[in-house]
């Protein structure tokens, strides 16, 4: 039964779409995660603990729960849906933008947590040194904190990318199954299996395994060289 088939045209469309989604998600996530992780690493407030818990929620919640609430919130009657409608952006579910929003939220802990750990392990000493040398807070963040956090940044980026590629439940809930618009590799794979196209499923599954292994291997190397 283990025959093998090269990816079909629709497979390639799904792969390209997935790569686009993962790239955009990673870029947006890093921009959000850097200041958020920085704040979480330095605050001792109760609010910080609460935010850290909220950020970690996607780690434990079933993707379907998250997808369901996002569907409601982003939908026509939902608060965010009404806002995007009012702004002329339309309704996000079952669109690439909706998928992107969901990916960012669902992958947030994979970007925030490695960065938060890196920032926390740096301590205050370097910041104090930078300040005594005339660097403002913002200057020190870009000239000392970020360059020193490079391993954490790479880990956060690779994990965000890989995790977005691997998501399934949330995509199904909010994005559905529109080829070229919202149909990502994991959904395409599901469709193949549904239609008993095991040969096609094999090649996609193998690509995902190889990609994920490579990504995790890269993270190991980066952290080894810390």
């Amino acid at each position: 039964m283990t025959s093998w088939a090269l990816p079909s045209h629709s497979d390639w469309v799904a792969i390209v779409l997935t790569a686009q989604l993962a790239t955009l998600t990673t870029v947006i996530l890093l921009l959000i995660a850097m200041p958020l992780a920085w704040w979480l690493a330095r605050t001792h407030s109760l609010a910080g603990k609460l935010v850290a818990a909220v950020v970690a929620l996607p780690l434990v919640l079933p993707p379907t729960v998250l997808g369901f609430y996002l569907l409601i919130a982003l939908g026509e009657q939902g608060p965010i849906g009404q806002l995007t409608n009012a702004l002329g952006l339309g309704i996000l579910p079952f669109s690439f933008s909706g998928l992107l929003v969901a990916s960012v939220i669902y992958t947030l802990p994979f970007a925030v947590q490695p960065l938060q750990q890196t920032f926390a392990s740096q301590g205050d000493g370097w910041l104090e040194a930078a300040a005594t040398l005339g660097a403002s807070r913002l200057d020190a963040f870009f000239s000392v904190v970020l360059p020193m956090a490079r391993p954490g940044l790479i880990t956060a980026a690779v994990m965000s990318f890989a995790h977005t590629v691997g998501e399934f439940g949330v995509v199904l809930m909010i994005g559905g199954n529109i080829p070229g618009k919202t149909k990502v590799v994991s959904v395409q794979l599901y469709d193949h299996v549904e239609s008993l196209e095991f040969a096609q499923a094999h090649s996609l599954a193998a690509i995902l395994v190889a990609f994920s292994l490579l990504a995790l291997f890269l993270v190991q190397i980066v952290n080894r060289n810390k």
Binding site: W126, E128, A129, A130, A131, T132, G134, S136, D139, V144
Partner: peptide
């Protein structure tokens, strides 16, 4: 601190490792 125009030498040096 950054506006005081200081030079500070810390006990452990605190040279930037990057």
């Amino acid at each position: 601190v950054h506006a005081r125009q200081l030079g500070v030498v810390f006990q452990e040096g605190r040279l930037f490792p990057h």
